[in-house]
């Protein structure tokens, strides 16, 4: 890793440090119930991060990121039940999901399916998962020892210490694991978008034809970032089924697919921290809405989505960054020379 990347990643490290402080401070101040809730929100934030990576940086409009999230959760649960421990199950979850994404991505990218069709296909895959797994309620639908359970889902064994299946983690410890996973995934994604690979992906996002004429096999790069994003989503899925304690086909439904898109739109495409922040904000908004019955959740989310698409198409984080930059430029006596183009650095 050269010093150039490290300098580019300075904001990433700042946010990661804040995350670490939060990770150690939160259990001291907050109650256990809140901590368990937070674990779920963190899992969803990992999902948002994965979409922020492949949509915001790879330019791949994937509507079915929850498919990878849910697949990861199911793969983890089923392997953990069969293996009697979570160590290999986590690995299996990431590998199965990435392999599935690679296979699906092969058909999509090598078929040169463009943006909008891509969105529709990935969404369709998600909905098919939804309707398929809902139907697996009979005793004949099982993988190894794990019953799929149809509509009711499967209860997930909790994470244990590596290679020690008897030492289960308590909810508070799962919180540490989740937060650490989020921070690691965030730093990894922040690093990835600043590597050569990440830069080529951004070039493809800006102008696919031009990137191709420069000699890059755009299909391969897109497939790469798509697969990595699916792997990260699978980690989110593993954390999610640990936070909730079970996994049901409902993760695959249209509402959750829309929610993922909304986090990224609201947070802002082209940043990583924006969607993570938006996830936490909207998670608490929807929890608060769940407590009352006047306004329907779907209704509010629909309005938020339409509002952002029409009026704040860039999302919150980029709008704030633009605004701050504009202020900085205007401020007298503080005019600084711009150091290269910094627009695409990880935030």
């Amino acid at each position: 890793m050269n010093s150039g990347i490290l300098r580019q990643m300075r904001p990433t490290f700042v946010y990661a440090l804040l995350g670490i402080i939060f990770m150690f401070a939160a259990p001291q101040v907050l109650q256990l119930f809140t901590i368990i809730n937070l674990t779920t929100a963190i899992a969803l934030a990992v999902l948002a991060l994965s979409l922020a990576l492949i949509w915001g940086y790879g330019g791949i409009l994937c509507f079915g990121q929850v498919a990878f999230f849910g697949l990861g959760a199911y793969a983890y649960t089923i392997s953990a039940i069969n293996f009697g421990g979570s160590t290999w199950a986590i690995l299996m979850a990431v590998m199965i999901t990435s392999a599935f994404a690679a296979a699906l991505g092969y058909f999509i990218f090598f078929g040169r399916v463009s943006d909008v069709y891509l969105g529709v296909i990935t969404l369709t895959v998600t909905l098919i998962f939804f309707s398929l797994i809902r139907r697996t309620s009979g005793p004949e639908y099982k993988i190894g020892n794990a019953l799929l359970g149809g509509f009711n889902g499967v209860s997930s064994p909790p994470i244990n210490l590596p290679w020690n299946p008897t030492s289960f983690l308590f909810p508070e410890q799962v919180f540490y694991v989740a937060m650490a996973a989020l921070i690691l995934c965030y730093v990894f994604a922040g690093w990835l978008v600043n590597t050569k690979f990440g830069r080529v992906c951004q070039a493809i996002r800006e102008n696919e034809l031009r990137a191709e004429l420069l000699g890059y096999d755009t299909r391969l790069y897109k497939l790469g970032i798509f697969t990595i994003g699916a792997g990260i989503a699978a980690i989110g899925g593993v954390l999610f089924c640990n936070g909730v304690g079970r996994i049901t086909p409902d993760v695959f439904n249209l509402y959750n697919a829309a929610l993922t898109i909304i986090w990224v739109i609201v947070g802002g495409r082209g940043t990583l921290i924006g969607p993570i922040g938006a996830t936490f904000a909207l998670f608490y908004l929807t929890s608060a809405l769940g407590g009352q019955s006047v306004l329907n959740n779907n209704l509010v989310l629909g309005i938020i989505l339409i509002f952002f698409v029409l009026l704040v198409p860039k999302g919150v984080a980029p709008t704030i960054i633009d605004w701050v930059n504009a202020r900085r430029k205007k401020a007298p006596g503080r005019v600084r020379r711009r150091r290269g183009s910094r627009g695409e650095g990880a935030q």
Binding site: D115, G119, N296, N298, G302, I303, L305, L310
Partner: peptide
């Protein structure tokens, strides 16, 4: 195209929410 897709998705959620209410 992409924005239309997203806006109609928002509309879809909105309509589901309205009819449910």
């Amino acid at each position: 195209m992409v924005d239309t897709l997203l806006a109609t998705w928002g509309l879809s959620l909105l309509m589901v929410g309205l009819v449910t209410s």
